[in-house]
Computed example of a mutant assay.
Amino acid sequence: MTTPAIWRKSSFSSGSSGQSDCVELARLAGRVGVRDSKAPDQGALTLTLDNFADLLARVKRANSHA
Rank of each mutant, 00 (worst) to 15 (best):
G30K: 01
V32Y: 03
V32R: 03
L55F: 11
T2C: 00
K60D: 11
D41R: 14
P40Q: 10
N63H: 14
L55V: 10
N51C: 04
A26Y: 08
S20Q: 12
L25I: 15
S10F: 08
R31K: 11
S14K: 10
L56D: 01
L49W: 04
L45I: 15
T48C: 05
T48L: 03
L47E: 12
V59A: 15
G33I: 13
T2S: 09
A5C: 06
A66T: 12
M1D: 04
A57Q: 07
A66H: 11
R31A: 13
T46H: 10
D54Y: 03
S13C: 14
D54P: 00
A66W: 02
A5W: 06
S10K: 07
L45D: 07
H65Y: 09
N63S: 06
V23F: 13
R31Y: 03
D50S: 12
D36V: 09
P40A: 09
T48K: 04
T46C: 07
G33Q: 09
S17N: 15
T46S: 14
M1N: 02
S17P: 00
A66G: 15
L28A: 11
A57M: 00
D54Q: 10
T3E: 10
P4H: 04
H65W: 08
A53S: 08
K60H: 15
L28Y: 04
A5F: 12
V34P: 01
A53I: 00
D50H: 06
D36G: 08
A44N: 05
G43H: 08
A5G: 05
V32C: 04
N51A: 14
Q19K: 09
D41Q: 13
W7Q: 03
N63P: 00
R27K: 08
A44V: 00
S13H: 04
P40I: 05
L47R: 13
S17Q: 09
R58V: 01
Q42W: 08
S14W: 05
L47P: 04
K38W: 01
H65D: 04
A29R: 09
A39V: 14
V23H: 12
E24S: 13
A53H: 02
D54E: 11
N63E: 12
V23G: 11
F52P: 01
G33T: 07
L55M: 12
S37D: 13
R58W: 00
S17L: 07
A53Y: 02
Q42D: 15
V23S: 05
C22Q: 07
A53L: 00
S14Q: 12
V23C: 10
D41S: 14
R58N: 08
I6K: 09
A44P: 00
S16Y: 06
F52G: 03
K9M: 14
R58L: 08
P40R: 11
R8C: 09
K60W: 02
A29W: 01
G18E: 08
K9P: 03
L49A: 11
G43E: 07
S17K: 06
K60G: 04
V59D: 09
D41Y: 06
K9Y: 11
L55G: 02
T3I: 03
T46R: 13
K60M: 07
A57G: 14
R27A: 15
A26H: 07
K9D: 12
G30V: 01
